[in-house]
Design a protein around this nucleic acid. Sequence first.
DNA 1: ATATAAAATGTGTTCGAGCACATTTTACGC
DNA 2: GCGTAAAATGTGCTCGAACACATTTTATAT
Lengths: 347, 347
Amino acid sequence: MTTKYTIRDIAKMAGVSKGTVDRVIHKRGKVSETALKKVNAILDDIDFTPNLIAKNLKNNKVYHICVLLPDPKKDSYWEPCASGIDDVIAELGVFGINIETLFFDPTSTKSFLDVNLAIQNTTPDAVLLVPLFFKEAGIVMQHYDALGIRVSTFNNTIESHAVKSFIGQDLHQSGRVAAKLLHSITQKGDVAILHIDEKYKNAVFMQEKEQGFRNYFDALPNADYNVLKCKLKHPDFDNVLSDFLEANPKLTGIFVTTSKTYQVADFLQNKDHKHIALVGYDLLNENVAHLKKGTIDFLIHQNPKQQAYFGLKFLIEHFLFEKDIPAQLLLPIDIVNSENVGPFMRD
Amino acid sequence: MTTKYTIRDIAKMAGVSKGTVDRVIHKRGKVSETALKKVNAILDDIDFTPNLIAKNLKNNKVYHICVLLPDPKKDSYWEPCASGIDDVIAELGVFGINIETLFFDPTSTKSFLDVNLAIQNTTPDAVLLVPLFFKEAGIVMQHYDALGIRVSTFNNTIESHAVKSFIGQDLHQSGRVAAKLLHSITQKGDVAILHIDEKYKNAVFMQEKEQGFRNYFDALPNADYNVLKCKLKHPDFDNVLSDFLEANPKLTGIFVTTSKTYQVADFLQNKDHKHIALVGYDLLNENVAHLKKGTIDFLIHQNPKQQAYFGLKFLIEHFLFEKDIPAQLLLPIDIVNSENVGPFMRD
DNA sequence: ATATAAAATGTGTTCGAGCACATTTTACGC
DNA sequence: GCGTAAAATGTGCTCGAACACATTTTATAT
């Protein structure tokens, strides 16, 4: 157990006043060579960490942080983020913190730009956002950079050196997890990657998952598997899928690369096929219902709640306690079946 | 955003001194009816939460908390706990906190009692412990209770009303998860529950898992499965297991109820059977090696690190920020295969 | 009415860091 | 040696809650 020193203790030990110690610690100058040496000698001896409680009390600042999410009303995938943010507030709200949550329309780049502009006008201390649109996100990141506003991102990466911190998952590995799951369930046969076109461009993320998925099967020693691929898009979703299934009777497993997995499950449960293994993404209510019925075998949980939680927590701890924000945090890729889904859903 | 009031603000609003406000808030008496009414009127109007930073600064107490674990040298299952505790210290160590980690021999009830006695003599503010031995844990819990020392437990439950807080997993559900996994992999055939006798009594936990496992298969509509059971114990581990496998040629899956799953995997990999699906517990290095080789299909992660993390964090936040400690926290039951094991292992 | 106890209320200090400002010391020119 | 600017150093107040202690008000008895 290390003794806790105060600047007053150090001042006494060095034979100077606490003002001088303070100037040395903060390198504010106006300190003679001799005094500097005396104080540094003490500081080298002991490990002094200033009392952050006292520091915060003196500071007495309410940090203002904006959180910018795609509107959960447009895509319920984002719903759990709110509870992640609430958790952070419950945890760190005792220190003065002002969190403002804002939404943009995930189908509209304009909405994204507009809301970011509004945020910039309020000059918050930091921003946590989902950089859904590559180009536009890059632009707003540069604006924040110029304004000296710290930004953290989560959910998806963008190629911008303005991004200082990212929370998310390894999507390539995520594809491998899906592959391994289908491999475990099906033993052999044809497996299909199924992309469902979203209104907004997440094609890059789907590709990363696909690559991981293929990468796994490619490396298998005996070629028991064929990896097929199918792109679905409304309104001819049902027709294309129907044709695809008829064309591939040996199909034993399907990997859906988006959270719209339930749409495939809806389709499959109406046909009375032999069971086709189904692995997809995210704990939407619709997906969980299929998971419990057995139409979906496994869901991969991308954990938007935890992503928002850590993103916000890191920012606040950075301001309050001067902690470093990790450049990247890759969260575990949670495998969920009908039996362990419970605790993941209490949000 | 709510304005932050201080006791001085309230004093001014109520037309009294901050001393009176303080007495009202802390119900210290010595306040006239009229003053009480005036202050309470203001307190009802606004929601006043005292500045916990200032409170802590005034308090200026270093809380002393003991953590008591089974010795990781005797059972490496406990190794990750240390890093969970380190995480808490990294997070909350800026407030004066003195955490002392102690170990007991998981094969010796005497060791458990001895170390607890030693802890009681140091009169810490709180204790976090693994109540491995039912009877002895119950006894020490009562001692702590009598001494007014707050205790939280994790990993396993004991029937004692002295237990105020428990962090762990739902073991019955955990057995169901294992069952569902074997069901997913094997489709049909015989499945076996395999208990490996430990030096210390965790029979009750193994039973809970067994009940969950059976419960799942019992509820399946068509009886494609037989659930078998086998108890293994050194030194005739290999013989008994060998006989069991020969006696049950239709066996397609095994559920091992302890972290010694690798011992079964070691055995299976030396026989050149057809593949028998294997599901077990915990991310010991030996287990993970088998997981990556494919000898073990799934591991259920009991997450000792997170258990220790939350157990300790709750205690500290209780003392520092007056937060309530949940009576029970059941952590997610993590399903781990060869592909998502990575992020769980960075400890 | 007045002394005196008792109750009520107000004041001032503490916790540790940070910073403004006051005070002291040093340097340098004449 | 002295004056003055500049550099160095020290002092004191602030943040908000808590609590000890000082002061004022009220109640009760004589």
